[in-house]
Amino acid sequence: MRPKRSREPFFWAMFSGGGMLAALFLPALVLVLWFAPPSYPELVGKVDHSLVKLALFGLIMLSLFHWGHRFRYTLYDGLQLSHLYGLIATICYGGATALTFLAGYLLWTFP
């Protein structure tokens, strides 16, 4: 019999995708919003487009799962809480999922 395969690849894919996107786009967003901030109506005009919303949703979702995965292992190894395996995984990925839904709701109803 084959040994059981880990489900880790899924979460690692979200983690690494999130890390990559966050590293690429968050500094650019911060830079633009900091140095050349658009006026609010301008911002609304730019975000109120389904493709922009979709891109923002993907960026936020993957960044959240990046956080969840990183924080999970910080708790396991950094604080040596690996005996709370299930609880920590639920909190980290559950938190990322809940905040993803919140982001989706906010984007959907925006502006």
Binding site: R2, P3, K4, R5, S6, E8, P9, W12
Partner: peptide
Amino acid sequence: GDVLSQHAGIW
């Protein structure tokens, strides 16, 4: 792969 892809492997 059967050994490497487990938690005690690469993950």
